[in-house]
Nucleic acid binder design. Structure first.
Ligand SMILES: [Mn+2]
Ligand SMILES: [Mn+2]
Ligand SMILES: [Zn+2]
Ligand SMILES: [Zn+2]
Lengths: 142, 142
DNA sequence: GTCGAAATTTGGAATTATTCTAATTCGGAA
DNA sequence: TTCCGAATTAGAATAATTCCAAATTTCGAC
């Protein structure tokens, strides 16, 4: 796994020309920079709006294309809550998501040291897990 | 939590006239019976098709209405995998879902005794979880 | 640098699961 | 039986996402 530092204003031009085997085009750089700039799990449309500020000609279809490329090359994670629109997360470390029902905001939740989820589940011998998603909703304690 | 026996051909007319505070109409009985009849996590459209066999006049809108009523009264669980259409599950006990990538079929996965997910997560003190969904994808071991 | 091929981007149309609307029907209480 | 609120219905609307075909960009070979 690679590590892209998260900074307030990542400069898209600082990304190498290829990441995880994915050619970094101008648009992909911009989309990635937008996602790295904040940890707020934006939707595709949020990303589109923010990308337009620096690249007014980018299209929504391209944002979807870029997101799918970045996700499939493990540069960004896709996050789903029930039937809401997908959100995108720059945190590549092992974590899951909590949505505060009051604000709607999504927060990263990390696992306590050393525990593997697979240890908790009665899975048939030899099962290979390729994808795992844990989503929580609730309220922060007062 | 109530316990509705799962049988090959549940008879909708055997359900009481009210369950968990929800008035059981003819259509709600039929939708519930369809879901109880198999443990295969049907989509709304699957439920619609099956319900039509015994009730040819039922509409898809009604199936959606019934599903939402049953889910909100905790008689049925709604199950989501990424952006796929929602599926419905009659198993009200604590479990999560595994989708076999080969067949697309969804299987219930139970938690090993005594472990609480919250024990694994670094959640802020006092957080109240109102909803939790764990979805796995992968292959069964050969 | 030029050329052609392949990849990417783009605007707009298409898709599709789900929700909404407004009219009709139903069902239980009085 | 009548009445009234709830439920059902058909069909239209919605909206996130995907698809399409044309235009543009990038890349490697020369
Ligand atoms: Mn995924
Ligand atoms: Mn739910
Ligand atoms: Zn995250
Ligand atoms: Zn289930």
């Amino acid at each position: 796994m690679i590590s892209l530092e998260q900074q307030k204003n990542p400069n898209p031009e600082d990304f190498p020309s290829e990441l995880e085997g994915l050619r970094m085009t101008k648009q992909r750089r911009e989309v990635l920079a937008v996602i790295l700039a904040e940890r707020d799990h934006p939707t595709a449309n949020d990303v589109f709006t923010r990308a337009q500020e620096r690249m007014p000609t980018i299209s929504l279809a391209t944002v979807y294309n870029c997101l799918e490329a970045l996700v499939s090359h493990s540069l960004v994670r896709q996050v789903n809550f029930e039937r809401e629109s997908s959100r995108y997360c720059p945190n590549l470390s092992d974590h899951c998501h909590f949505q505060d029902e009051k604000s709607g905001k999504i927060h990263d939740v990390v696992f306590k040291g050393g525990v593997k989820l697979e240890d908790l589940l009665e899975l048939p011998q030899g099962t290979k897990i390729s994808h795992l998603e844990i989503s929580l909703k609730g309220r922060f304690g007062k």
